[in-house]
Design a protein around this nucleic acid. Sequence first.
RNA 1: GGGCUGGUAGUUCAGCGGUAGAAUACCCGCCUUGCACGCGGGGGGUCUGGGGUUCAAAUCCCCACCAGUCCA
Length: 901
Amino acid sequence: MDKGQILAKFSSDPNRYYKVSLFEKEGFKRKSCSKCGRYFWVLDEGQDLCPDHIENRYSFIGDPPTRKRFDYTQAWKEVESFFVSNGHKSVSRYPVVCRWRDDLYFTIASIVDFQRVMGSKVVFEFPANPLVVPQTCLRFKDIENVGVTGRHFSSFCMIGQHSIPNSQGYWKDKCVELDFRLLTDKFGINKEEIVFVEDVWAGGGSFGSSLEYFVRGLELGNAVFTEFQGDLENYSVLDQKIIDMGAGLERFAWITMGTPTAYDCCFGPITKYMIEKTGVDTDSDTISKYFRAIAKTLSESVDISVARKNAAASVGIDNVKMGKMISPLEGIYLIADHLRTLIFAISDGALPSNVGGGYNLRILLRRTLATMDRFGWDFNLDDLIDLHADYLKSTYNELEETRKDVKTIIGIEKGRYKESRVRMINIANVLKSQNKKLAVDDLIRLYESDGITPDFLKETQIISEIPPTFYERLSDLHQSEKTEKVEQLDLDKIPDTNLLYYKEDPHEFEAKVLKVINGKYTILDKTSFYPRGGGQEPDHGKIGNYDVVDVSKHGNVVIHETLGGSPQVGDMVECKIDFARRYGITRHHTSTHVINASARNILGSWIWQHSAFKEQDYARLDITHHSSLTEEEIMKIEDLANITIRKNIPIFINEFERGEAEQKYGFRIYQGGVVPVKLVRIVNIEGLDVEACGGTHVNKTGELGLIKITKAERIQDGVVRLEFVAGEAALKYTQSQDKKISQIVKSLGSSKEKVLESFEHVVKDGEDAKKRVKQIIKRTSESSAKTAIAQAKNLGKVRLFITVEEELDDEYHIAVGEQAVNLDKSLIYCALIIKNSSIRIVAFSGADAVNTKKAGDLVKDVAKVLGGSGGGKDTFGQGGGKNMLKIKDALLVAEQSILGK
RNA sequence: GGGCUGGUAGUUCAGCGGUAGAAUACCCGCCUUGCACGCGGGGGGUCUGGGGUUCAAAUCCCCACCAGUCCA
């Protein structure tokens, strides 16, 4: 839906959509901007310009309009206490890795915390009403602006004020009044400074009006009233209206502090530390002027580099000053921002990698390190991480737990960056030595496959200029395509299947056939057949006389696929599930949870389930991890898993309201991904692992018997796959491995105890034999060559040695032939070597013999007879054929060919 | 999730259908003799694995694995 059209519609009826009681009470006037026409509400009747166009934009820099000064963490305490004293519950932030939504990698707004996708609908889950949350949000869109504009961040704290209008919550009037009073009462901002701008919001099938509030041109917050659904011509009021007020905490701090940039007051002691360490020349007056100027010019010119230039020019900063003062400051801001984002993301379980959201994190760290390289700074990243974590402690105490792990991950990733640098320099050196002219295509290939930017090539003087078409060509290459979703079966009017496997779970039961689709998909009124889902393979068994080969769930209906026919609709049928299969799968499913927890304990807090698969005699678990596993790590995980089995820990399964479960157990429960139901089933292996999971599980870990990891491989950057077997499958696996060893023992004629030594012996013998053959050929080739020369037959001007070989290989004849023609320049050496029912031809012509017959030509003629082909150089030719019966003819043809017949 | 690039001696790479190479490191000898350097010789490889095409594959095609890299 077009936002402009909605805005036009809403603004045409401001009393209905925008006028709140506060405006009336305080005497706010509605005005239209004389420059852009947008409508806004303000106390000063003489103001004709909207906040985007007023003269005193960003004049709070150096002159804050507030009574008090609050830095970042203090500002949150103020905001929090204000909302709490006004009846709000203060909720802890949600993870920045958005595991409860399939369509987002990271949490991008506070409202996302409470959105749960069920089917195609978004529903809201509020742990309290009304509430306020300091939600860390990650946004990578304006990454180039970070550090440069004074107000862009890769992650920021969105103050989320959320309310559902009901007996506890409130709607527009109170919302705007609260926001107004927060600014005036709490922060002491003069009410004449506050401007509300009319706007709208639309997304996910719903829409509503919104009021953005500004002070001196700085947008502090935006109160969105999600109210309608449908399209503009025909819309209705939502059952569940929502207030989504999001405000930037960084900006609240900034406006009270009046620092040149928002960075100066939001990273606590980090920027100060870096400025002192680097000795960057700072002069707050010039810097204030510069950042005020850039804030103003930014909206007018799109290109950030142009904005920088203009801003510098307007306050009289020359290139030297730019390079000494502004650029290093930008670098410091960038480092502080990027590291803070990495701390949050890694703490919440994301890993830098080359896929998915991890790529954004890798970019952040590489930008950080590249900036340090550029200025020649050698900050200890661990120190900076400590400074951040210490500073954030009062609001985000949870970062404490993962502080060490964050350092580990960033350390590893830094190592990768360094290796990558070395590789880049090597490639650059090769390019330099080749001294070839590089086309745009070459530059694109270098960039896309090796990460070598044209800027780097220019820096190292491999190219003199970056071709103007480079970026154009690059963006042409990336026209993204969206994938379509698969259509679902039409299951209208079919009631939800009664799921017995979550209840008594009988192995045999009787059920009524409700519907049969395409003669093979049977729907029953109730079932104990577990459908495919959550990586768990479906049950097999029988419905009547028909074999069930697949079971799947569509919505709340279970569909059984049968082989060779299906029962009649309306019949009562006897159903029986293959319990041996089910029990194997069940054991593997519980084992997956056990292995996941073991891996997390052994490796680190960054371990999450990436995906999983379990069937009767095999299972695999993909976990998020930064490197390949060592054999030792695999063994430790396996050991811990088996210790867990021996402890025979009980497993409890209970249903919870989702919000309750999240509050009680945290977001670790979402290992298996999105759970699209209101009631979540919590599988709790006491003291070890708690997950939301719909699968089947054993009652006690002892039932698993044995867990054996059979394989560990890195399936992509940041993901390791563990394959394993449990229970009976584990026994079978060890038995079959043992059998293989027995066979090896038998064929080696060794014993089980000494099999390894025997094997090493055999391998070494093989190697030695090969070496010996090589030596023998080397030493005997000369005498063999002489023998060949002696046996050669005169044929016109040349002498021919030709032989048919069944025992020795081509390697031998090549060595001998070469020697022979060296000793006798008029010799032609030709061998027909029989190998695997085909014939290989090798021929040499001596330096003098070449005039009579070239080796390559000879081979061609001979090979033709043998039904093959060949060729080669004057002195050496190779070829072959498959017709063994023609060998005698071939010998004859060789002579004739030399004689020129 | 979608691309792209690469995998050859311990290492860095060349070769891109026709006898597997260079540099460096290693071992031996010589020269010097404090080392570096210099000279001569030597060992070192199922060309990541598996299929296919071909008389012939490191080389071409397909698949897998490993590594790197870009984008959404």
